[in-house]
Amino acid sequence: MSIQHFRVALIPFFAAFCLPVFAHPETLVKVKDAEDQLGARVGYIELDLNSGKILESFRPEERFPMMSTFKVLLCGAVLSRVDAGQEQLGRRIHYSQNDLVEYSPVTEKHLTDGMTVRELCSAAITMSDNTAANLLLTTIGGPKELTAFLHNMGDHVTRLDRWEPELNEAIPNDERDTTMPAAMATTLRKLLTGELLTLASRQQLIDWMEADKVAGPLLRSALPAGWFIADKSGAGERGSRGIIAALGPDGKPSRIVVIYTTGSQATMDERNRQIAEIGASLIKHW
């Protein structure tokens, strides 16, 4: 067993022997301040990774656009098919120029040779490549099948209805392509620590998230040296922004954090800054 596999296998073990965790309302004060600064709703939840206990939450059962955070769930569904012998990570998928959609920095470079399922998941999570996500959605049967996968996990809230990039439209009061912070946090925890996926697939999923290259201005910008984070960000229309993450000190994750916002007129930089400040408060009061 590799060191990384050992780390993920012992996530519940280490967490069980940690000192009790206590909620700190100071972080919620910052979440509410972010709402004021952005002029928009902000949803927040913080779960203990081992027990699933909610440590703090704000608007945990209000719907927010998922945006690209759905790509972690998508690759979880792909990995479940791999575990069941219905898919192979090494299978190569070929596609054409007509398949390319807006923001496809990886797939646009491989029109000639195609990409493997493993490479597509890596591109979808680490670079948020939209064509990679659409190609992977095709392998599982489309958005409705991802929703069905989530329902089978016990998540009857999260739903995907459309493809990239239309799913980022974020129309107010439109339930399409949305989740709730509580539902997303619980589902992410199941994917990373539950028995739904094999140990190898859980490790692969967290490795992809740990290698995320496009979430630097968010929670990662607030992390002290030595902290662990595996995350996936999302951005959408109407001032929408979000991030889902597993993080913790001492090089291992111990909490799940989900943050979503929508309806702001603020710039992307300002949305990023507010999420980073929430992260800084979380870490300060850990």
Rank of each mutant, 00 (worst) to 15 (best):
I206S: 12
A148H: 13
D207P: 02
I206H: 07
N98A: 15
L47Q: 07
A280I: 14
D155T: 01
L74I: 07
K30R: 12
V29T: 11
L100K: 04
E237S: 15
D129W: 00
R189D: 08
R59S: 05
G248D: 02
S240C: 08
D161S: 07
S264V: 05
M115E: 03
M268C: 05
L218V: 04
L10F: 10
R189C: 12
F17E: 04
L19W: 15
I275K: 00
R238C: 14
I3S: 14
L188A: 08
T267V: 10
T158I: 02
D48F: 03
G43L: 00
D177T: 01
I256C: 06
V257A: 06
S68T: 00
A9I: 13
L111G: 06
I244L: 09
S57I: 07
A123D: 02
P253D: 07
V42N: 04
T186P: 08
F6L: 11
H110C: 08
R63Q: 08
S221P: 09
R59L: 03
G263R: 07
L160H: 06
L219P: 04
T139Q: 13
I283M: 11
F14R: 01
T139D: 11
T193L: 11
R241L: 03
L191M: 14
L150H: 04
R162E: 05
F13I: 10
A23W: 03
A77K: 11
L150Q: 05
D155G: 01
W227E: 00
L150D: 01
S128W: 00
T69Q: 01
V106N: 06
R255T: 05
L49G: 05
W227S: 02
D155Q: 02
I11M: 11
E195K: 10
E108R: 11
V29M: 11
T69I: 04
L192S: 05
A185G: 13
I275N: 00
E270C: 12
D231W: 03
Q204F: 07
T131A: 11
G248C: 02
L47I: 14
M209Y: 00
V258G: 04
L55K: 08
L197Y: 05
G216A: 10
A246W: 06
K252A: 13
V117G: 02
L160E: 02
D250K: 14
A16E: 05
Y95L: 07
P12T: 12
L10W: 07
M180Q: 15
S57A: 15
A215E: 04
